[in-house]
């Protein structure tokens, strides 16, 4: 089955982001196709490269990056939601004249059209948080 995953929950303020990761891992294990993971709202903070959690805590960012690379996942962060919250790639940092960028490797900034596209081209859309 083709499944799109939408994440709204903050990585620290809710369990939603961690649940989404576990869900995607499990779905892939069962042979399903993950068409896209779309990070929206507070979930854009999942993709900041600057999070430095204590070593004995769950490092959600690394886990997404590893899974994304291993399974060639399309990890898309909503650009409007990200700009509003200070998650920028190099291009956006330049465009908005900011001193630094922090979008973690493995993630892409793109528009809400990617969310619509995912719903149009998937059998199921599964939402975490919101």
């Amino acid at each position: 089955m083709k499944i799109a995953v939408v994440v709204y929950g903050s990585p620290t303020g809710s369990g939603a982001a961690a649940s989404a990761y576990r869900y995607v891992s499990a779905a892939l294990e069962l042979g399903h196709e993950i068409t896209r993971v779309f990070f929206y709202g507070e979930a854009v903070h999942t993709a900041t490269a600057l999070a430095a959690p204590p070593q004995d805590e769950n490092d959600l960012l690394s886990r997404w990056q590893q899974l994304g690379q291993a399974r060639e996942l399309d990890l898309v962060v909503c650009i409007a939601a990200a700009l509003r919250r200070g998650v920028l790639d190099a291009d956006e940092a330049r465009r908005h004249e900011k001193e630094a960028c922090n979008l973690a490797p493995g993630f892409t900034l793109s528009g809400l059209g990617q969310l619509t596209d995912a719903t149009l081209n998937s059998d199921r859309v599964i939402t975490f948080g919101g």
Binding site: G41, A81, R84, G111, L112, G113, L115, T116, T119, L120
Partner: peptide
């Protein structure tokens, strides 16, 4: 309550723009 309402509206308008 935060940005949720605006971001919901954005999602609706995008879907409509794609004629979904």
């Amino acid at each position: 309550q935060g940005q949720l309402a605006r971001e919901a509206l954005d999602a609706v308008l995008t879907a409509a723009a794609f004629e979904q």
